[in-house]
């Protein structure tokens, strides 16, 4: 296994799919993401990027949610091969 490098949600491009591995966040924002259904094992697809590349919009459990890069960079994922 040379899986040392962690991939974060902000690094995937539009159309890519991923599964959440862990949340490197705490407090209020972690709770908010959990409310939106982002926990370990949640499938996420990147749907859009805003004109400036930040924030990105992600399909999470049937809803499209925009997340700023400073948050999505702390969501560690496993990419799914399409």
């Amino acid at each position: 296994m040379n899986d040392n490098k962690e991939i974060s949600l902000n690094s995937i491009s539009v159309g890519d799919k991923a599964t959440v591995k862990s949340l490197k966040l705490c407090g209020e924002i972690k709770r908010r993401l959990q409310d939106l259904g982002i926990i370990e094992g949640t499938n996420i697809e990147c749907i859009l990027k805003s004109p400036w590349g930040d924030p990105g919009a992600y399909l999470i459990r049937g809803a499209v949610i925009a997340l700023r890069n400073d948050i999505s960079s702390k969501i560690i994922i496993n990419t799914l091969e399409v």
Binding site: E28, R32, A63, V64, I65, A66, L67, R68, D70, I71
Partner: peptide, 11 residues
């Protein structure tokens, strides 16, 4: 600092 931002884009 800018706070956490989550925004739902409804259909």
């Amino acid at each position: 600092v800018p706070s956490n931002f989550t925004l739902e884009l409804p259909p």
